[in-house]
Simulated scan of single mutants.
Amino acid sequence: METDLTYLPPNLPAPEDDGACDHLDGLRIPDIHLPATDGTMVSLQDIPGRLVIYCYPMTGPSHIPLPPGWDEIPGARGCTPQACSFRDHYQELQRLQTTVFGMSTQSPEMQRSEQERIHLPFHLLSDEHRHFSEALNLPMHYVDSLILLKRVTLVFENGYIRKHFYPVFPPDKNIDEVLAYLKTTTR
């Protein structure tokens, strides 16, 4: 059975702020190289200016079933709608001189398939070995044998976290919060 992953079912449980990201603002971006969907290794410390990384649990084609109980996990569902909202506002992010990446613990191959499937104009980064998430002590979902990032969006300015959005709900509206913040801090 295929699932329409662009659709957010009604009555999804909203995640609560458990304080798992309270330590992030002011932290320096880790000196880590991550594989991107274009096959390159991205050094996050080498990206000048403003950078937004939206972290999400997982995406995939609709013919791959979601983990059991996925819709009941607060904040789990909605990765594709979130990615599509960043895609749809990509030009506006560019006008605000902001580099954007999506990031998950999925393999670069899975992410590449997703980037192509939903036509993302930016790259996804794989934290498959969890070096980035562990360096920043990001919150995780533990589902069956999977270790997945919880949804958090990080805004970096010249290598430091200036703002984080957590919890992110509903995921398709996260871009609105991000853009509002970027517009109030325009250089």
Rank of each mutant, 00 (worst) to 15 (best):
Q111V: 07
E134S: 11
F101E: 04
R112Y: 13
R117S: 15
R117Q: 14
R87W: 10
Q106E: 08
P108G: 09
S126V: 04
P121A: 08
F101W: 10
H123S: 09
F101G: 01
P108E: 02
L136V: 08
P108T: 08
H129T: 15
H119Q: 08
H119N: 06
R95L: 09
L93W: 13
D127N: 01
Q106M: 06
L93G: 11
F132G: 03
P121Y: 04
S107D: 11
H129L: 15
E116R: 12
P108A: 14
I118V: 15
L124Y: 05
Q94P: 00
L125N: 12
E116L: 12
I118M: 13
S113Y: 01
A135C: 04
S133Q: 01
R117K: 12
R117H: 05
E109Y: 10
H119I: 00
L125G: 02
T105N: 10
S107G: 01
Q111C: 08
S133L: 05
G102F: 14
L125D: 02
Q97G: 06
F101C: 04
M110K: 04
P108R: 14
H129G: 01
R95W: 02
L96C: 08
E114T: 13
S85T: 14
Y90N: 09
L93F: 15
Q111I: 02
S107W: 09
L120S: 02
L125Y: 10
L96Q: 04
I118H: 03
L96M: 12
M103S: 03
H123A: 13
Q94W: 08
Q94F: 03
R130G: 01
Q111A: 13
F122I: 06
H89M: 02
L120Q: 07
S85R: 12
T99H: 11
Q91E: 15
R130P: 05
Q115W: 00
Q94S: 11
T99Y: 04
S126R: 14
R112F: 12
I118T: 02
H123Q: 13
S133I: 04
L93D: 08
M110D: 11
Q91S: 10
A135G: 03
T99Q: 14
H123D: 14
L93R: 10
V100G: 01
L125K: 05
Q111T: 05
Q91P: 00
H123K: 13
L96H: 05
G102K: 03
E134A: 09
F122G: 02
G102D: 07
S85N: 03
T99W: 07
L136K: 06
H119E: 08
R87D: 04
T99P: 00
H119A: 15
G102P: 02
R117M: 14
H131A: 06
S133T: 05
Q91A: 15
S85M: 12
T98L: 01
